[in-house]
Amino acid sequence: MIPSVLAVLYVVLLVLAAAAAAGLSVAAWWRPTPPLVYASVAAVAAALLLSAVPAGDPGFAVDALITVLALAAAIVGGGPAATTALRMATRGSVADGDHGGIIQDGSEVLRGGTAIGLLERLAVAAVIIAGFPEGLAVIVAIKGVGRFTELDAAAPRERFIIGTFASLIWAAACAGIAVLARA
């Protein structure tokens, strides 16, 4: 009887950690302050650690719930995480434009990063959860080709690389929650 109680407790803790990761990611999206971003990072880390514990199959419904929560965290949480990483890296040395890009030689480059980031993280999490990690190469290639003409100066290149890596790492970590929970 005790092992089943522990199994139920484990599943409850895992779902709560995944829900905290998703909830804090959404909160950081709406109010991107460093404490909320750091809290969402901690929640994702906790969910990853819990999902890595080999505890058997929690069942289809729990797997589906954890997958949805992990996808939500992956898609929305990566924006504030990437923004925080960019702020830490640039320390205010790059002027932000009116449309989400940066000012480079009097014009705004790298616009549309929010929409591209949402789609990128959805695609990254989806290919990992679907068990098709080769799709990551396609995603990175498409993003690089799409931004190629804007990457002629050092500041946009640096911002592109830092933002992309932060976003990809975030999405992969969140997708890992779902993948490990199923294993």
Rank of each mutant, 00 (worst) to 15 (best):
W30Y: 08
W30C: 14
R31N: 06
R31A: 10
R31I: 01
P32Y: 10
P32F: 04
P32N: 13
P32Q: 15
P32D: 12
T33P: 09
T33Q: 15
P34T: 09
P34F: 13
P34C: 08
P35Y: 03
L36S: 08
V37C: 10
V37I: 15
V37P: 01
Y38P: 03
Y38T: 00
Y38A: 04
Y38D: 02
A39Y: 02
A39R: 05
A39D: 09
S40K: 07
S40W: 04
S40R: 11
A42E: 09
A43Q: 05
A43T: 08
V44Q: 06
A45G: 05
A45I: 03
A45K: 07
A45C: 08
A46S: 10
A46N: 09
A46P: 10
A47C: 06
A47H: 10
A47E: 10
A47K: 14
L48D: 11
L48Q: 15
L48G: 11
L49R: 11
L49D: 04
L49S: 13
L50C: 11
L50P: 06
S51D: 06
A52C: 03
A52M: 13
A52S: 15
V53H: 14
V53F: 14
V53T: 15
P54V: 09
A55T: 01
A55P: 01
A55H: 04
G56K: 10
G56L: 13
G56V: 08
G56P: 09
G56M: 13
D57F: 02
D57P: 12
D57Q: 06
P58H: 13
P58K: 12
G59T: 11
F60A: 06
A61W: 15
A61K: 14
V62G: 03
D63S: 06
A64N: 00
A64Q: 01
L65K: 02
L65G: 03
I66D: 03
I66C: 02
I66A: 01
I66P: 00
I66H: 01
I66G: 04
T67G: 03
T67N: 06
V68E: 06
V68F: 06
V68D: 08
V68C: 09
L69V: 07
L69M: 09
A70P: 00
L71S: 04
L71Y: 14
A72L: 15
A72M: 06
A72Y: 01
A72S: 03
A74C: 02
I75Y: 08
V76C: 00
G77V: 12
G78D: 07
G78C: 06
P80A: 04
P80G: 02
A81K: 00
A81R: 00
A81S: 02
A82W: 01
A82L: 06
T83E: 09
T83A: 11
T83S: 10
T83M: 11
T83F: 07
T83K: 02
T83H: 00
T84S: 00
T84L: 09
T84F: 14
T84I: 04
A85H: 02
A85T: 07
A85M: 08
A85R: 01
L86H: 00
L86T: 08
L86N: 04
R87K: 15
R87A: 12
R87E: 08
R87G: 14
M88G: 00
M88V: 07
M88A: 13
A89M: 14
A89F: 08
A89R: 03
A89T: 02
R91V: 13
R91D: 11
R91S: 07
R91A: 15
G92P: 07
G92V: 06
G92Y: 12
S93W: 15
S93E: 12
